[in-house]
Amino acid sequence: MINTAHSYQFQPGKVRSELIRMFPISLFVVAFGAAFGLAAVQKGLGPLESLLMSTLVFAGASQFAAIDMWGAEVSVIPVMVVVFAINSRHLLMGASLYPMLKDVSPAKRYGLMLLLTDANWAVSAQEYQSGRRNLEVILGGGLVLWLAWIVGTWLGVYFGGLLQDPKSLGMDMVLGCFLLAMALGGKKSRVCWLPGYLLLPPHWQHGSGCRLTRMWLQGHLPAV
């Protein structure tokens, strides 16, 4: 235990390549951030306040929700509840990375969590299931997404009129499409939890390598 503690070695080259890999997605995050910046100033937040929120909170959906509750006065408890509810998925996401995170020092471990988003988590969690350990994507991918979110907010705050309706361009679906592509990519077992899978004839299900889902369907899965 002592010897293997903190054995995860970060490869600087891989951090860079993961940063580049997430770059195309981060361009869409810029557009989404611009939509947030625009919404924030329209709700009466100052430019610097909007930027500060994006920099510190760095959780898009919860920021939009909080902005929705903004006014001359803001009720604290409802905002806290909504932000917690929307971001509570981070609890599970962080936990699911723990088998890798236990191999880095606590400082790095919690430092990485600062950069946790749906997108870089999805890549890391899916690669882990295929037997690859990739915390570099949390760091590299998280950094580029964080910067994109800040730059996007900045653009929205100052040039909000440029992109009045990102929804009409399908920008709101970027994250959904990305996560779905991650869920379907690579290893077979990733399709196991799609509703369509459950409709397949049993022998097809049998051939698809979805052991846990099959056991669950047949009632053999022990309660965990």
Partner: peptide, 16 residues
Amino acid sequence: ILIMTLVTLATRFGGV
């Protein structure tokens, strides 16, 4: 903003 940050941090750190 600080409150939102702390709540979000709790979710980021909590699971780990």
